[in-house]
Design a protein around this nucleic acid. Structure first.
Lengths: 338, 338
DNA sequence: ATCCTTGTTGAAAACGTTTGTTGAAGACAC
DNA sequence: GTGTCTTCAACAAACGTTTTCAACAAGGAT
């Protein structure tokens, strides 16, 4: 082999310099109790002087696992994942782990590739936000079955044996609805996505809405659900919303299951000349743009960073303890009143 | 060593199964010309059948370099970096590279740690968005000097021997100003940050503004620069802006050097009851929330994804070619008129 | 004295690749 | 036949760690 530029001191350099064998150096660096304190101190001094840093590949090879993890996310453009990733990265960094960031671009095929890559590259574990709907996740199932440490965020599959951390979306829907009830509304519209039954988080928010409205004695007419499909609406015109807001008996209280919808409502109101005082609007997600709006609306804030942080903690726990113990957590959201 | 669970077939399993030595398998997998085509095909078939995937750590160790790179960014909350990272990740993934995401949290000390980590862990290279102001970057300088492949994004240091990819901010300032001039304004206010002289991107935008205004014959009174410090303003009240917009001789054309400032202007106008038709506002960054505003303003859009993509390409080039060739690129922004 | 501890160290075998070197077999010219 | 070239495959030595095992010394109990 051609000699390579030596990037950094190795364990052998330290050993030679300190006058001990390199196994002793390894032990000293890993703070093993098998090495004398004086020797340990000497070795650490030498290591620092030589600016020794371990070769992660050699460590990964010898240990059979590494301190590298993976994030697999569709993308970061939504209102949630960027902060989740940041929170997780923060917690991981504190524990000495690093994570690869892999985007699936909302493609099942790419997701599968990334997951396979993680498995085969002896990466320690992963935090996933899968795009698959429930049952179309054979590789996820395989992953879990084979004991690869995985934590799902923002999504859960009831029948999948894997840890997850999500927002308590039922509670979120409840908070939003209670807020509107507290303001004396006896008739509330819940604005949701046409495909909400496929997305557990949205379905849960609506369930919270229905439960709370029901408990308050609101009938089906007073607690209506209106769905629309943001993609298929005429760009930026939202005919569905115009229809909803037309006429004098327009709703006075709207719970939008996410802030993108709330934004659409707000924009439509503004276009139709409806003053923002006329309708009580509650969104969900506490999107970054929300507080910047001229007349910001209230929103249910997800504990985004905490989701990431908890997911990281759980993952690290699984790795360090080698436990296959499954943890399912729903973190409580909070209502931001504006 | 305790026997470990065998995660995946190794090169030796393939060799045994195919009836050849494992060095031949390695060569076949790397498509070396030193192995017969028939043998190669057979080996590839067996490898696929056994679901062989190389162990990245072993490869990294043997090759002395890896296909893992690093992103080092302050955070992703701004208007730019998230998309840059996405664009870069996309380009890297296509080329078979993966990247660790490391946040510096705007702390010099953490940045230094991350950079040191990358260097010592034999990572292949990195895309950096450093927080340091110009000369306080000794470790960056060291990195470049030692030939570690690095590409800077969104920032450049004139005296640093390192590649970078940035937006052509001078051109951006020019586009914004020309837009306002085209709309017959003979008096324009440029709203900038109090610390803009420390940030090359903002300084460049202002330079573009001054140049263009000067060429159009606007005097200092007609092309004023107003600076304010978003952090220190009374939260959400922006007294500086109120003062600016008070009175009948308020500016009719404002170029805000970023969309956060544009948002602040918009919000203040709204609070003061100034109709949005009264002032022509141009922002910078094309922030995600901009198009959602009830009356969106125009903005200079940075080629965010392209910055990431180009940075990735340059980095890969440096790594694959082993060339220390320095590439400095300014990508042109474009004006989004709304 | 012998035999166990206990504490500390070193030698050496992994971990799964890449790659320089060697050698075998066949082709071809003499 | 012998010699030289090619083509291909096997051998073996790295890469930098971790970890098992054996070794040795010092001390205490028998």
């Amino acid at each position: 082999m051609t000699p390579r530029r030596r990037d950094s001191a190795t364990i052998k350099d330290v050993a030679r310099e300190a006058g001990v064998s390199y196994s002793t150096v390894s032990r000293a660096l890993n703070d093993s109790p098998l090495v004398n304190d004086r020797t340990k101190r000497k070795i650490l001094t030498v290591a620092k002087r030589l600016n020794y840093r371990p070769n992660v590949h050699a460590q990964g090879l010898a240990r059979g696992r590494s301190h590298m993890l993976g994030f697999v996310v569709p993308d970061l453009r939504g209102t949630l994942l960027m902060e989740v990733v940041e929170g997780a990265e923060r917690a991981l960094a504190e524990a000495g782990y690093r994570a690869l960031l892999l985007h699936t671009e909302w493609e099942l095929e790419i997701e599968k590739e990334h997951v396979e890559y993680l498995r085969s590259s002896r990466i320690g574990g992963a935090i996933l936000c899968p795009i698959g709907r429930d049952e179309e996740v054979p590789w996820l199932r395989r992953l879990a079955r084979e004991g690869f440490p995985v934590v799902l965020v923002d999504r859960y599959f009831p029948r999948l044996e894997a840890s997850h951390v999500v927002t308590d979306n039922v509670l979120g829907g409840r908070l939003a609805t209670e807020h509107l009830l507290r303001r004396e509304h006896r008739s509330i519209v819940c604005l949701s996505d046409a495909e909400s039954h496929l997305v557990t988080s949205l379905a849960d928010r609506m369930q919270g809405f229905r439960e709370t409205a029901g408990e308050a004695g609101l009938g089906p007419d007073q607690a209506k659900v209106v769905t629309f499909d943001l993609q298929s609406e005429v760009p930026r015109e939202f005919p569905t919303l115009r229809r909803l807001l037309e006429g004098s008996q327009r709703p006075r209280a709207i719970f939008a299951v996410n802030d993108i919808f709330a934004m659409a409502v707000y924009q439509t109101m503004s276009r139709m000349g409806i003053s923002s005082g006329e309708i009580d609007l509650v969104g969900f997600d506490d999107a970054r743009m929300a507080p910047f709006m001229p007349l910001p609306w209230s929103s249910v804030a997800q504990p985004k960073e905490d989701i990431g942080r908890r997911a990281a903690q759980i993952l690290i726990e699984m790795i360090d303890r080698g436990s296959g113990h499954i943890v399912r957590e729903s973190l409580p959201p909070s209502l931001i009143v504006r």
